[in-house]
Each structure stands twice: as C-alpha cells, then as structure tokens.
Amino acid sequence: MTDTPTPQSPDPADPTWWQQAARGTLIERMGIVLVEVGAQRTVATMPVAGNTQPFGLLHGGASAALGETLGSVAAQVHAGPGRTVVGIELGATHHRAAREGVVTGTATAVHLGRTTASYEIVVTDDRDRRVSTVRLTCLILDRG
C-alpha cells in the first residue's frame, strides 16, 4: 500500500491535486510548488536553497527539472483524460546565477498539437531577472 494519494477523479487544473500527486517524488524533494496550472500556462516556484551546486549557485539541472516539471504538467492538462505525456526533448540556456531566494518558472505553450506539445519555460529570480530559459517537447500517448 502506498502513502501517495491518487484521487480517482483528478482536477488537472487544480495545483493542490498536483502537489498531492507529487508527494514522495523529485517535485516534492526539490520544493517545487505549483501556483497555476493550465495547458496554455503553468507556474511554479522553487527554493534556491537545497538545489545548488557545490559553489552555492542554483544548479542548472535544478532549473531544467523545474522546466520539465512545468512543461509536463501543462502538456498533461492539454492531453486530457485517458492520455499521458512523456518528455522527448529538453534544452536549457542559463543566463545568470541565483544564490538565494526563490525562483519562479512560467511555462508558456509554443505548440499544442494532437501528438506533441512544446513549451518555453522562463525561470526568473526574486528580482524578476531571467535565470534560465528551458524548452520542452512532450509526446502525447493514449493510455492502453
């Protein structure tokens, strides 16, 4: 038996449902908190503390993981019931360092198709300066 709640009828636009579903996952361990969920736009925050490389800077992989989380959640909302998504391409450009505070990721749909969904995810610091730009494409699959 698992401690992770899995509601029978998820509301894909409810950030609270996603936070419950993320219990025990990388999302929870990294402190990612979903603020807004939708197919066109999804937003989350993540603390810098605990997600740094040895020199105290936000780890580039943490920015990439935040981006993949946001794009995947948004793509799943787009895909709808009975379908699932998997990331098939991820790229990130790191523009500036973050040493403290919280970063915010905003995923914006670039393409919402029948079989793929692509997103640009902009990660900004507490002063609204761009830290990273992440690009994600997801493949949409029928559950079977």
Rank of each mutant, 00 (worst) to 15 (best):
T2Y: 01
T2W: 00
T4E: 05
T4I: 14
P5Y: 07
P7M: 12
S9R: 06
P10T: 06
D11Q: 12
P12A: 02
P12G: 03
D14A: 11
T16H: 13
T16Q: 15
W17S: 08
Q19L: 03
Q20M: 13
A22G: 06
A22S: 15
R23V: 14
L26S: 13
E28I: 14
M30I: 08
G31I: 11
G31R: 09
G31K: 08
G31A: 11
I32D: 03
V33Y: 00
L34E: 07
V35I: 15
V37F: 08
G38V: 11
G38N: 06
G38C: 09
A39T: 07
Q40W: 01
A44R: 09
A44C: 12
P47D: 09
P47E: 10
V48P: 00
V48N: 01
V48Q: 01
V48T: 04
V48W: 04
G50E: 06
T52W: 05
T52V: 15
Q53W: 09
Q53G: 07
P54G: 08
F55W: 15
G56E: 10
L57P: 00
L57D: 08
L58I: 12
G60V: 15
G61C: 09
A62L: 13
A65C: 11
L66P: 03
G67R: 07
E68H: 10
T69V: 12
G71N: 08
S72V: 03
V73L: 07
A75T: 06
V77R: 03
H78W: 14
H78Q: 06
G80V: 03
G82E: 05
G82P: 00
T84R: 09
T84P: 00
V86T: 13
G87P: 05
G87M: 12
I88Y: 00
I88T: 14
E89F: 03
L90V: 13
G91T: 14
G91E: 07
G91M: 04
G91S: 15
H94N: 08
H95Q: 11
H95G: 02
R96D: 06
R96T: 12
A97L: 06
A97M: 09
A97F: 06
A98V: 12
R99F: 11
R99P: 00
V103R: 08
V103I: 15
G105K: 05
G105T: 08
T108R: 09
V110K: 03
H111R: 13
H111W: 04
H111M: 05
R114W: 04
T115M: 04
T115H: 11
T116L: 05
T116I: 13
A117T: 07
S118K: 03
I121D: 00
I121H: 00
V122W: 00
V122L: 08
V123T: 07
V123D: 01
V123Q: 01
D126R: 10
R127H: 14
R127Y: 05
R129V: 01
R130E: 15
S132R: 04
S132D: 06
T133F: 04
T133D: 02
T133S: 10
V134R: 00
V134A: 02
L136K: 02
L136R: 01
L136W: 06
C138I: 04
I140A: 01
I140K: 01
L141V: 03
G144A: 11
